[in-house]
Amino acid sequence: MTSLLSPDGTALDASLQPLAEVLTDAPNPYPVLAWLRRSPAARLLGQLVAAPDELNHSALDALSQGHATTYVRSLLTTAGLLPPRDENLALLINWTARTLAKLPGHQATLIRPFAEWHIIRAAIDFLTWLDTQQHTLQSLTQEDLDIWAISRPTLRARSIPFIRWAGARHLTRASLPIEHPPSQLPGQFQIEEDHYEELRRCLNDPTLPSDVRIAAALIRLYALPLTRIVELTTDHLHHDADHTYLTIIRHPVVLPPKLARFIDDHLEDGFPHGNEATKYLLPGRAPGRPRNPAGLSDKLKRYGLPARAARNTAMMQALDDLPPVVLSDLIGIQPRTAERFAALAGENWSDYLAATRPRPHQMRGMGRG
Rank of each mutant, 00 (worst) to 15 (best):
M1T: 13
P18G: 02
L19C: 07
L19N: 08
P31G: 02
L33I: 15
L33W: 12
L33N: 10
L33P: 06
A34D: 01
W35S: 11
R37N: 13
R38D: 13
L48H: 00
A50C: 00
N56E: 00
H57W: 15
S58P: 00
A62Q: 15
A62R: 14
Q65D: 15
H67S: 05
A68E: 13
L75Q: 05
T78H: 05
L92Y: 09
I93N: 05
N94R: 10
W95V: 02
W95I: 01
P104F: 10
H106C: 05
H106L: 12
E116W: 14
A122R: 03
I124S: 01
L127E: 12
D131A: 07
T132G: 08
Q133Y: 03
H135W: 11
L140R: 05
L145S: 04
R152Y: 14
L155E: 04
A157D: 12
W165V: 08
A166Y: 09
A168Y: 07
R173C: 08
I178D: 09
H180Q: 15
S183N: 09
G187N: 05
Q188I: 02
D194Q: 15
R200K: 10
L203C: 03
L203A: 04
V212M: 01
Y222S: 01
H236I: 00
L237D: 08
D240R: 03
T244L: 11
T247V: 07
R250D: 14
V253C: 05
F262W: 06
L267R: 10
H273D: 06
K279D: 12
G295P: 00
R302A: 10
P306C: 05
P306W: 08
M315R: 09
V325C: 04
L327R: 08
S328E: 07
S328D: 02
D329H: 06
I331W: 14
G332Q: 14
Q334G: 01
T337E: 11
R359G: 06
R359H: 12
Q362V: 13
G369Q: 08
G369H: 08
